[in-house]
Design a protein around this nucleic acid. Structure first.
Length: 414
DNA sequence: CAGACAACGCATTTGT
DNA sequence: ACAAATGCGA
DNA sequence: GTCTG
């Protein structure tokens, strides 16, 4: 455990002169307010019951080019709607998992897409042919659908369920840090047949951590605990410099009542793309994240580091134990630091869901934009030439520029 | 029929 | 020793 | 595996 903990004492963050407890009150300047407003909104979005009220009035903005509304692709899903073909999508889901385990990410994704459109189909399918009209369903899947309708399952899935190699690889991949490649290698070349066999094999640091917390990492995090982490992190960050802006993204922000990990997004008003690219005093941003991590270690919240660079940390955290109570569970935590001009695209991106992101990206592409976790830019469909990033100072900006009605995070939970 | 299917940070392995 | 490629995760 | 060019 070298890097992260070793440089705890050196903190030459020149511009990071934390005014400490002095002026703790919320700053007022305009841009900051935008940030605070949204982060504040974050803490108020607990129950998915509040969904309806969240519709925002459009902030007026004259300069935005009116986006051309087009046919909406593939329908934003009505989460309350029934899946009339669950039998079918369950089987396809197995196939998708298998392809993923084998390392065929594209096939896995193709199955997922088919599952999505079949799930949205408003009535039970009666034939493979009928299915083939749906987007993402081609001849191969149509045939599978036909088989599932007739026999209730798929021969392929049955066989895969008996395949010991596939089953073992699938299990090994439950260890964080073991992907399709390593799992296959462990099985084929190193004779690994169980999780415990791994203990006697060479593991990367990440994989060792994955083993150490194999059971804990699979446990979901209750929302109440997420709330505590949010408070803790905001508190620690404010103590370093009260200009930090903190967002806990991921499924927490989408209002889920449990989460798989803790996804923290950070920015700071003085950390901008321009200031970081040249020799301004701010080029010290490279120690900024390290400083944050050091502080979280000092406070005893972090237990293991998986990786740490200038802008991204991956590690393990645990709430402090209280005497006479059960120990808390170790949690996966990711912390990312964005320049402030890339913050909202980053928040938008990491709020997800993945499916929602795919949908909105494709929508952006149709309109001559390219949307990434870093920016929203115009993009010429033919030449592929991209424009300079549009100024995004809120999530609403992204929706408005794309001509999509605002959706609160809880409504992106596809 | 070949290529895209998003793009990227960090750790580790492989290549020179 | 350094550069490039690969694996992994999200 | 599916879709596009």
């Amino acid at each position: 455990m070298p890097s992260a903990t070793s440089k705890q004492s050196t903190l030459p963050a020149s511009w990071l002169l934390s005014p400490r407890k002095e002026q703790r009150t919320c700053p007022s300047p305009g841009r900051q307010q935008t940030s605070l407003k949204s982060t504040a909104a974050l803490s108020t979005v607990s129950p998915p019951s509040a969904v309806k009220s969240v519709r925002k009035g459009p902030k007026k903005d004259a300069k935005a080019p009116t986006p051309h509304k087009k046919h909406t692709p593939l329908i934003p899903i009505d989460p309350s709607k029934k899946n009339y073909n669950k039998r079918i999508t369950d089987v396809l889901s197995e196939l998708s998992k298998t392809e993923k385990n084998i390392g065929n990410q594209w096939k896995a994704q193709a199955y997922s897409k088919a599952i999505l459109s079949i799930s949205a189909y408003p009535k039970p399918l009666v034939s493979g042919k009928e299915a083939q009209d749906l987007p993402g369903v081609g001849g191969s899947i149509a045939k599978l659908v036909q088989e599932i309708i007739e026999t209730g399952t798929s021969e392929r899935v049955q066989n895969e369920a008996k395949d010991e190699r596939l089953q073992t690889i699938s299990m090994l991949m439950r260890v964080s840090g073991i992907g399709p490649s390593a799992a296959a290698k462990f099985y084929d070349e190193l004779g690994v047949r169980s999780i415990s066999d791994l203990l006697h094999r060479p593991l990367t640091r990440h994989q060792k951590i994955g083993m150490k917390y194999f059971n804990e990492f699979e446990k979901r995090i209750p929302r109440a605990e997420m709330d505590r982490w949010q408070a803790i992190i905001k508190d620690v960050l404010e103590d370093i410099d009260d200009r930090f802006v903190v967002t806990i993204a991921g499924s927490y922000r989408r209002g889920q009542d449990t989460c798989g990990d803790i996804d923290v997004l950070l920015t700071h008003p003085e950390f901008t793309t321009s200031s970081s690219s040249d020799e301004t005093p701010n080029s010290n941003h490279s120690v900024l994240l390290q400083l944050v991590i050091s502080r979280l270690h000092e406070k005893g919240y972090l237990t293991d580091d998986i990786s740490l660079g200038d802008v991204k940390y991956m590690g393990v955290c645990k709430l402090p134990d209280v005497p006479n109570t059960e120990a808390h569970i170790h949690r996966r935590i990711d912390i990312r630091l964005s320049p402030i001009d890339m913050y909202w695209p980053a928040v938008f991106h990491s709020t997800g869901s993945d499916q929602f992101n795919r949908w909105i990206r494709s929508l952006a592409a149709e309109q001559g934009y390219t949307l990434s976790e870093y920016s929203l830019r115009t993009k010429d469909k033919k030449s592929g030439a991209v424009g300079t990033p549009l100024r995004i100072s809120s999530e609403e900006d992204i929706f408005r520029l794309l001509g999509v009605e605002w959706r609160a995070p809880e409504q992106r939970d596809w």
